[in-house]
């Protein structure tokens, strides 16, 4: 690992309070390595949204009780991976649908805006279903996933200068 590289690997108990710890670790590590405020904020947002999803929809009741979190910077790329056991296949299909839409889209802002319009027309308290679109639009990350057995891994990646 050269001087500018960062690697964080965590096995996380799926509780809401752990989010602050994850955010703090990312901020400290990336600040030490003098990454830009914009990249640090985008990485914290991306990690938070993915870990929130993993806590909300994953883990309990599967063999994969803990959430696995990895953040790595290398050769001008930052890669964030969050893995969790999935209780209900519909939760995986929901992620798949959104990530597949993003992969096909040239403009994630349009998908984000479309979802905002849906919320405006029919506001539903609770889940926003905006997180993945936000990671792509606001954070400029490309998203992908793998699904093996009950283990869902969402991968977010972007470049930096």
């Amino acid at each position: 690992m050269n001087n500018h590289e960062v690697q964080i690997s965590l096995s996380i108990t799926p509780t809401w309070t752990i989010l602050k710890e994850v955010q703090k670790k990312i901020e400290d590590f990336m600040n030490k390595k003098r990454f830009s405020t914009e990249l640090i904020e985008a990485s914290i947002m991306c990690a938070s949204e993915l870990v929130e999803n993993a806590i909300k929809y994953g883990s309990a009741g599967t063999d994969q009780d803990n959430i696995k979190f990895d953040l790595k910077t290398e050769n001008g790329r930052i890669v964030i991976k969050v893995s969790n056991g999935v209780k209900d296949e519909r939760d995986f299909l929901n992620v798949k649908e959104r990530v597949d839409k993003l992969k096909k889209s040239k403009n994630p802002a349009e998908l984000y805006m479309e979802r905002l319009k849906e919320l405006m027309e029919s506001p539903k308290p609770g889940e926003s279903q905006l997180g993945l679109y936000r990671i792509a639009y606001e954070g400029e990350f490309k998203l992908d996933y793998t699904f093996q057995g009950v283990l869902l891994t969402v991968i977010a990646e972007r470049g930096y200068s």
């Binding site: 949204e49 929130e52 405006m120 506001p123 308290p125 889940e127």
Partner: peptide, 16 residues
């Protein structure tokens, strides 16, 4: 300083 995406629906509700 930060808001998660779950904060957006109540903001939208307020705007409406």
């Amino acid at each position: 300083k930060y808001m998660n995406s779950s904060t957006v629906p109540p903001i939208i509700q307020l705007i409406k």
